[in-house]
Design a protein around this nucleic acid. Sequence first.
DNA 1: GCCGTTTTCGGCCCGACTGTTTTCAGTCG
Length: 582
Amino acid sequence: MARLLEEFGDLSEVNGDNPFKVRAYRNVAATLRELPTSVEEMVRSGAPLTDIKGVGKEIALKLVDMATTGRLRQLDELAEIVPLGLLELRRVKGVGPKLVQALWRERGVTSVAELEEALATGRLAGLAGVGAKKLEAIERALEAYHRHVGRTPLAEIGAIAEPFVARLRAVDGVERVEIAGSYRRRKDTIGDIDLLVVAKTEAAARAVTREFTTYPEVAEVLGSGETRSSARLANGVQVDLRVIEAEALGAALLYFTGSKAHNVALRQLALDKGLHLSEYGLFAEGGSDAAPATPGAAGERVAGRTEEEIYERLGLEWIPPELREDRGEIAAAARHELPRLVTMADVRGDLHVHSTWSDGKATVREMVDACVERGYEYLALTDHSKALAMTGGLDEAKLARQWAELDELMAGRDDITLLRGMEVDILKDGTLDLSDEWLERLDIVLVSVHSHFELSEAEQTARVVKAVSHPQVNVLAHPTGRVLGQRDPYALDLSAVFDACLANGVAVEHNASERLDLSDVDLIAARSRGLTISLGSDAHSVAQLAGMRYGVDQLRRAWVTPGAVLNARPLAELRRFLAKTA
DNA sequence: GCCGTTTTCGGCCCGACTGTTTTCAGTCG
C-alpha cells in the first residue's frame, strides 16, 4: 500500500498536480511503512483509518480499496495518462518535476533511454530554462544514474567516511568536523554522507573546502560555494560538506542529522512556541506588528551552539540521533521519558559465533580469545548443522568431537564462559536438523532458515512457527532472511512468528552482520510485544565480532533498553532463560 | 489531500546553489 501511494504521489507530481497533495500521499506512504499494525487488520477490526497520521477521508477510501482489491484504481487510471518512464527520469539528479513535464510535454521524452537519445541528437535545444550547462549537468547525472543506484550498508559507509573526516580534521584552522545525516542516526543503509565543518577563519574555511574538493577519492565535484560543496566519490557515494559558524553548530548538527520528519516536527514545535528553527539557530519571532522590524534579521537567536540548548529551549530533553525519526520521540522527550537505550557497554557476550568447525575462518580458540579481549563474560559457539553441507555443518558425531575439543580448550580457564550452541537449520517441513537427544544437551539452540526461500507466506510461516515451537529452541536467528543490498526478506507472517516465539520462551535474534535482520521497524514490533532480543554478530572471523556495534545501533533505533536484550543479562539470568525457567 | 486550544479556509519547513536570467525558477537536501 505504501508503495502504491508513493507511486501515485510520484505520478501526480510529474503530472503537475498540487504539490501539497503529492506530499500528502508521500507522508501517508512513509507512515504506513512504520505502522506496527497492518491496515488490513485495522479494516478487519473496524478501527478508523483516519486515526493514522495524515489519513483523511480520501486516502482512507483508497486504503480500504487497496485492502480489499490489492490495487489502487486511481493509480491505474493515472498511469494510463502519465508514462511510467517519467518516474525513472525523476531519479536522474537535476531532473525535477518541472523539467520532467517539459521533457514530456514539449519533447516527447518519457524515459531515461529517450532522454539520452534526445541529448545525443540535440533535440533538447531551445527548451525553456535549459542551457548548455544544464545539458552537461544532465549528461553527468545520467552517468551517475547508471553507476550508482540504491543505498550503501552502514558499515561500508563508515569505512569510507571516517578516513575522509580524519583528513579534513587535519587541515590548519579547522575546529570541528562532524558526520551528520542518516549515518549519525545509524540507519542500516546510507544514501550519502553529510559532513559539517567549523573553521576558525575564512581562510581555514576555504582551505577545508579545497581539501574536500581535491580529496583523491573524489571523482567529481558537483558544486562548490562558500558554505556548501558536494562531490561524488569514485564508488558513486555522494558527500556533502557544509561550513558552519561555531554559534550555529548545534542547529546545523540538528538540521543535517535529520530525519526530515523529525526536523519538520521540531520546526512546528518551535513555531507553536513563537520561535523559528533553522540550520542557523533557534530564533525569537521577529517583525511582528508590535515590535519594529530588525533589519536583516528575523529575530534574536536564543539557541544554536549546541543541540542540547536547542532541545532544552523547546522544552525537550536531548534526543539521541538514533531516535530522530518522528516515531514519538519528541512527545517522549517532552515528558522526559526517553528510554535508557542499550549501549555496547551493556553487551556481556556474543550469542552467535562460527568457527572452523563449519564455515568460520578462525578456530574456536581464536574466537574465544578475541571475545575475552572484547571484554565479554560469555560467548555461544554456534556452528552450522549438517543440512548446510557447503559450510561443513555438524552432525551428531562431529558435534561430539567438537565438544571434546571445547572441553580441552576450556579446561581450567575462567576468563570467559563458553556456551555449547549450534545454529540448527530449519528444514523445509519445519523440523530441525539435529536429533532431540542432542538438542537437549546443547546449552543454547539457535534455529534459522537457509533454504527454500521461495515458499509461500503460509508455508514459510507454518514452517518457522513449527520450528520455534520445539521445546529445545532458544533463539530464532535472522528471522526474515534479508541481506542488505543483496536479498529481500522471504514471505513470512512475522506477527504469527513473534506470537509463537513469545508463547514458547524463544528470543528473536538481531543479526549484527551484513544482514541487520531484524530491521529497526521489525525490532520495534518485537520489543512492543515484550519479546526478548538476542544479539549475535554471526561472526565468521575475528574481525566480524566487531560488527556487534552496528547491531546495537539498530536496537537503539528501535528504542530497545538493556532489559530486553538477552545477552545484556548476567550469565545466571541468561541460563535461566535458556532453561525456560525464567 | 490533510488539518485545526487562534483557523472548516488557507496554510502546508526552509535555505543554498546553479543556471538562466537580469530578478527568478528549479532542484536539492
